[in-house]
């Protein structure tokens, strides 16, 4: 008698999923082996029964239309967008930030040299810088940039920045919330970051 076949091979045989040569060999073996024949019969009955149960589930009524492919934003485009945004921010800061106060130009009255009172007085204009007052103006603290810290490794394409209060509302923080509602990044907002106005 030829070698017996495994249950998996017999199941594949029933579905005609074995290579042609093995199909013939299994068929020949089943004819002479009552054990494998019994397993085959049992597998056939069960497969038909399960298939009958599964066939109760309705098929999709209409063919599925393939929608537009959800594309990933290309990394290059993201960098280009960031670069354009940075350039625009720099340009705006140059245009909109207040200029330094204009230096005061004072033209003093001419001083006539002694011994020549009758000489015509020639006055040359001179530029004198006004001295800075001894009491220095209070130095405005330089805003400290607070960077967002990503909470996962996935790239953030879109999101909403939400101001929240941590530690019972005492510690303000900005959270970027993704379209799926998950928090994607966070940053603390301190007083000298210039964003607590």
């Amino acid at each position: 008698m030829t070698q017996c076949w495994s249950e998996g091979e017999l199941r594949a045989y029933l579905d005609h999923e074995l290579p042609a040569r093995d199909m013939e060999r299994v068929a020949a073996h089943i004819r002479e082996c009552s054990g494998c024949g019994g397993v085959c019969h049992e597998l056939t009955v069960r497969a038909d029964r399960v298939s009958g149960w599964m066939d109760v589930l309705p098929d999709a009524a209409a063919p599925t239309r393939i929608p537009a492919i959800p594309r990933r934003a290309r990394a290059g485009r993201r960098w280009a967008g960031a670069a354009v945004g940075l350039a625009a921010a720099v340009l705006l800061s140059v245009v909109l930030l207040p200029k330094r106060s204009v230096e005061i130009v004072v033209t003093p009255p001419g001083v006539a040299p002694q011994g020549s009172p009758s000489a015509p007085v020639s006055v040359k204009p001179a530029i004198i810088r006004q001295e800075t007052p001894s009491q220095a103006a209070p130095v405005k603290p330089k805003p400290q940039i607070q960077y967002f810290v990503a909470l996962d490794n996935e790239p953030i394409e879109t999101g909403l920045v939400v101001r929240v209060g941590l530690n019972g509302g005492q510690l303000p923080a900005d959270v970027i919330v993704g379209p799926d509602g998950r928090a994607r990044a966070i940053r603390l907002v301190s007083e000298n970051s210039g964003e607590l106005k």
Binding site: E7, G8, E9, L10, R11, A12, D15, L43, A47
Partner: peptide, 12 residues
């Protein structure tokens, strides 16, 4: 080659 075995188990 594993599909037959796993399928038989799943049906059972």
């Amino acid at each position: 080659s594993s599909v037959g075995t796993l399928l038989a188990r799943a049906e059972r």
